[in-house]
């Protein structure tokens, strides 16, 4: 049960992101909260694929006896998390670009006042 500490860390990251999303109104801080949740989920996916005593799934200079005697960590979660990280970078860039657009057009970054200033 205490061995599940990596999962707990990931969930703490997700909870911190949720807290940021619920309590802050600045658009940049909202973006930070979204990135926190995303990093927690990525970390969770990678740690789900770990095999106890395993090495990285790479054969170059691997220890003798892979993959039969020495297990390898699961490669598929790592590959798909890599995809997820790049998509996260792209969506974060798009979020920040929209924040810049809103700030240049409305003159504020407050998520509550953007709604009032319509028109």
């Amino acid at each position: 049960m205490i061995g599940n500490l990596p999962f707990v860390v990931c969930m703490i990251l997700v909870a911190l992101g949720l807290w940021t999303l619920m309590t802050r109104r600045n658009l940049i801080k909202l973006a930070i909260g979204i990135v926190l949740i995303e990093n927690g989920v990525n970390l969770f996916l990678v740690s789900l694929g770990y095999v106890r005593g395993g090495v990285a799934p790479i054969y170059t200079y691997a220890p003798q006896g892979v993959p039969v005697n020495v297990p390898m960590a699961m490669p598929t979660p790592q590959a798909l998390t890599l995809t997820s990280i790049v998509i996260g970078v792209a969506t974060t860039a798009l979020l920040l670009a929209f924040a810049v657009l809103i700030h240049r057009q409305r003159g504020t970054l407050d998520a509550g006042r953007i709604r009032e200033l319509r028109g």
Binding site: Y59, T60, Y61, A62, P63, Q64, V66
Partner: peptide, 8 residues
């Protein structure tokens, strides 16, 4: 590729 652990 040589099978198993190899220098690459």
């Amino acid at each position: 590729v040589a099978m198993g652990a190899n220098p690459g």
